[in-house]
Nucleic acid binder design. Structure first.
Lengths: 254, 254
DNA sequence: CGCACTTTTGAACAGAATCAAGTTTTGTGG
DNA sequence: CCACAAAACTTGATTCTGTTCAAAAGTGCG
């Protein structure tokens, strides 16, 4: 009997994601959770955690700014964009989320979502009712600690984006963005050197604090310098160390 | 008998901060905590939470990037700056923290601090050992939920800074910064229309993604427009609604 | 009181935004 | 499956905002 989709394992062990599809269909959840030190009994209670799955088409909103909050969303499949809108229409993209990542933590404080989340490709999420998560985590300290680490990681990530927005040039920003995507795709079992962008140049610009033309020019520049190969949405990373050098990460590998 | 410094009340109710000095010395903690629905017994356990206080001189570091993490810090008194450093020396200030605010949540994920925190004026903090906080919050659901809201609020705040850095002009950034400070000072019982900046123009610039000269020019511009009066570090807000208008907050009061 | 730090202001410059045009890709309906 | 319209992308020319470089004035701390 296949196991219900439990997203927490994914959240805990992004590096195991490549194996999750099989793991889930063969009830491998136990295996995934055991490293956190969960007992079989505790794992049982995790099963209650996921209320329901939800599938989204491309362009469909998972939630909008102001919507009441009752559950976090764990991305099982697909690619999301979250953004905050300024009244005059300016959009600041706050992040792109892929499988194994958690959405909605911003909503805990006010019990309302503070951003829009839209699927950039067909997607599937698990709803994790927050009250239930808090209740269960009371009885599973490792789970609670795990959740705290996930929220903390989000804060660290945001600080990284602040560094990027506050003190990097257009080329540096785009480079950092590509290296980040590359890393995240490879963590999920994809190639670190070739992947498909799911978002438009405008989305990238709204994330990096640049206009879409500037993003396009920066892509062209990186390609002209032989660091990447880009054709429309397909990216090929030709010289990762060259890219790292751009953002001051002088590590030349070995 | 004066009550030991318990920072959690401050964290929960920043609007009560003006009263906290007396509240603490007259053991008003109960009063402050009752609204969260804590029983006297629960409050007892809170007392164990604060390991020790720590005083810092101006310029002293509370922690540095990479330092091992074991406790959060609740600011009781004073003014802090947190920042991440890029290897080439560029500094991105991630925030300014004042009394009642919590420091160190970024460190939970890796169990190491990921930024520097320095006191900009003589300061006092309470150390809140994180393991202890997790343990106690297991038994006090409202406390746990409170903590989650505090972390979530930090994420929301960071998204606001991303919006600022990614899509606002120099003048808009500085304006948003001043309104934010004004609001936070007034929340703490200070004046919302006149206050002292604790940081240098360079610090402000490193927070807002601007050079110190640009910050200085933006101050001059706002003053020339009659919106503020500034002499060195002393700020006087002359036309708060005019300021709100700049950042698109067209609310003209009444 | 003096020296270091901070701030202001000016002038020249650079990087990204804006405006504009043309091209390619994608999605849709016939 | 093709045709067509809409959306997305690229590239060029120009403009503008913020940076850089520079100098002078102000502030405060020992």
């Amino acid at each position: 009997m296949p196991h219900p989709a439990t997203p927490l394992a994914h959240l805990s062990f992004p590096h195991l994601l490549p194996h999750i599809k099989t793991a889930c269909s063969t009830c491998g959840l136990r295996e995934l959770c055991l490293p956190v030190g969960l007992t079989p009994l505790e794992i049982e209670s995790l099963d209650e955690l996921v209320e329901r799955r939800r599938s989204l088409k491309r362009g469909e909103y998972l939630h909008r700014n102001g919507a009441p909050f009752h559950a976090l969303f764990a991305v099982r499949q697909g690619f999301f964009k979250t953004s905050v809108l300024h009244e005059d229409g300016r959009e600041q993209v706050t992040g792109f989320q892929m499988s194994g990542e958690l959405l909605g933590m911003d909503a805990i404080s006010s019990e309302r979502h503070t951003c829009d989340a839209v699927a950039l490709e067909p997607a599937e999420v698990c709803e994790v009712p927050f009250a239930k998560l808090e209740e269960i985590s009371r009885h599973i300290p490792t789970l609670m600690n795990h959740f705290h680490k996930i929220m903390s990681r989000e804060i660290v990530r945001d600080h990284g984006v602040m560094l990027l927005l506050g003190s990097m040039s257009a080329e540096e920003r785009l480079t950092a963005f590509l290296l980040n995507l590359s890393h995240r795709f490879s963590t999920r079992g994809g190639s670190s050197s070739a992947f498909q962008l799911r978002m438009t140049r405008e989305d990238i610009g709204n994330y990096l604090g640049l206009k879409l033309e500037t993003v396009s020019r920066a892509f062209s520049k990186l390609q002209a310098d032989g660091l990447i190969k880009i054709s429309n949405k397909h990216i090929e990373i030709r010289d990762p160390n060259g890219l790292r050098k751009i953002i001051g990460n002088e590590f030349t590998g070995r």
